[in-house]
Computed example of a mutant assay.
Amino acid sequence: MTGPRRDPDGELRARLREAAGVHRPDRARILARVERGRAAEDQGAARPRLPDWVRVAGATAAVAGVLVAGGCAVASVVRDDAPARHPVAAPPGSRETGSREAGPLWSRGAVDPHSNEFWAQSNITLGTSTALTALTVELRVAQTGSVTSTGAWRSLPADDFTFTLDERDGFLVYRWTLKEGRTVPAGEWVFAGQYNHGRGGRDAGGDRYSAAATAASGPLAVRGGFTPGG
């Protein structure tokens, strides 16, 4: 013989009904929870919650702002420590002087734009439409205060020239002389003298240059100066 069949689902429902009958809600706790919910809603209305992407973007912008501010401070220190690059002569376009004759030889003088408040380079550009069998180029840099040579160069081969540097009559004198048997072909050529000077924008108004040459047509000569600094 078998006993009566059990009904698990029925027993579970019966126990739930019994528990529900015994349970008494804590009204005070429920009311407190409702009040807290309302307060949170009021704060949310005054300051709405931002989407996640906005908060991430804001944090990124804040970090970027700190980096930018730090970069500006570093850049300021570097600028203060580094020497300012002041014009040594007049602004570009007005600091070249020289001569361009109807003949085969012409020239112009310019303070190099890369010069700064401690150092400068004076450029002489010499142009010829015919070969030269003799040439002497002289650059005279006025002693305006602490002027000392730091070198010289030319765009023609160094072995074709004898170079000398002297200081006399208040000038640094750079001189390039074409060696015997060498020639200068037609074209434009640069002769440059470099020098340190006292701090500040140096006035090149007292500087000058000259060039004497010989071509098949006979002797040639040009000379010029450098526009004073503004």
Rank of each mutant, 00 (worst) to 15 (best):
W153G: 09
D166A: 15
S99A: 14
R47G: 09
Y195Q: 07
A213V: 01
P157W: 04
T183A: 12
A221G: 02
A20N: 12
L126E: 01
L126D: 04
S107A: 14
R33M: 11
A84S: 13
P87T: 08
Y195A: 09
T148W: 08
T164C: 11
S122H: 13
L139Q: 13
T60R: 14
E117W: 06
P87V: 06
A61M: 10
G145Q: 08
D169Q: 13
N196A: 11
R154S: 14
G109S: 01
V184F: 10
P219V: 00
R79D: 11
R85P: 00
G151E: 11
Q43N: 08
Y209R: 00
L172E: 09
P8V: 09
G58I: 13
V74E: 01
V22C: 02
R108Q: 12
R108K: 07
A192Q: 05
N123I: 10
I124Q: 03
S146Y: 08
E18I: 00
V63G: 08
H86A: 09
R223G: 04
F163G: 06
G200Q: 02
R27P: 03
D166I: 03
S122R: 06
P228F: 01
R95G: 07
T164N: 13
F163D: 10
S129R: 15
D166H: 12
D81N: 08
W53D: 15
A59T: 03
G181V: 12
A75E: 08
D207H: 05
R140T: 00
G58H: 09
P8Q: 08
W153V: 12
R175N: 02
A82W: 07
S122Y: 11
T144V: 12
V22D: 14
A211W: 00
G205Y: 02
R202T: 05
V22T: 14
R208E: 03
G44V: 02
E117M: 11
V74S: 02
R208S: 10
C72W: 08
H23Y: 15
W153L: 07
E180M: 01
A221P: 00
G44I: 03
T183Q: 14
V141A: 02
R29T: 08
V88F: 05
A69D: 06
P51E: 15
F163W: 13
N116T: 09
E11R: 14
N196G: 07
W153C: 07
R208H: 11
G230V: 07
D169G: 09
G145Y: 05
A131M: 03
A158S: 14
A64P: 01
Y174S: 13
V74Q: 05
V78I: 11
G201V: 00
G44R: 15
T60C: 09
F171N: 02
R154D: 10
Q43W: 07
G21C: 03
L50G: 04
I124T: 04
F118R: 05
R13Y: 06
G187P: 02
A192L: 04
R27T: 15
G109T: 03
V111S: 08
R36T: 06
R100A: 12
A57C: 03
R36A: 15
D7R: 14
